[in-house]
Simulated scan of single mutants.
Amino acid sequence: MVTKQFSGSPEEVADLRRADSLAREIFSDVANKWALLIIEALGERTLRFNELRKEVEGVSHKMLTQNLRMLERNGLVARKVHPTVPPRVEYTLTEPGKGLRATVDGMCAWTQRHLGHIESSRTRFDAPEPDHPLP
């Protein structure tokens, strides 16, 4: 994987609104459903690959691998390989990963708090339009 070089002032590199900013690239990496669910599943625990796969229902082997590599590259997940046969690989959140998990926990709480409202809004939105007589 090639590391992209970002130029500009520290403010420009950190500006999410700029398409060429490092901040936007990081945001894009972690703001996907699989990354968020992996971070939530790891929580305060260390898990092996297959344990993670069971925790995150519906994730394919390929998507889990890609997201774990991306999270490791960004320093949010640590990967430890134990020298056994077969090798035992474990994943755990780093300190920045734990910090991001606090945000993910907030998103989960927000979802649960507003689930009823969102569900009723979807029902209203998806309902067929009532027939209106022409004037």
Rank of each mutant, 00 (worst) to 15 (best):
L22I: 08
L22R: 03
R24E: 07
F27P: 07
S28R: 09
D29F: 02
D29M: 02
D29K: 07
V30T: 07
V30N: 03
V30R: 08
A31F: 05
K33Y: 09
L37S: 10
I38V: 11
E40W: 04
E40I: 00
E40V: 05
G43H: 06
G43W: 08
T46A: 10
F49L: 09
N50W: 13
L52H: 02
R53K: 13
E55S: 14
E55L: 12
V56G: 04
E57V: 11
S60A: 06
H61K: 13
M63S: 14
R73Y: 14
R73E: 15
N74A: 12
G75C: 08
V77P: 03
A78I: 15
A78S: 14
P83S: 08
T84L: 01
V85N: 14
V85D: 14
P87L: 07
P87C: 07
V89E: 03
V89A: 02
V89I: 11
E90A: 11
T94V: 03
L100C: 05
L100F: 04
T103N: 13
G106L: 12
G106Q: 14
G106N: 14
T111G: 04
Q112F: 05
Q112S: 11
R113G: 03
H114G: 06
H114C: 01
H114M: 04
L115G: 03
G116V: 01
G116D: 09
I118L: 08
E119H: 10
S120A: 05
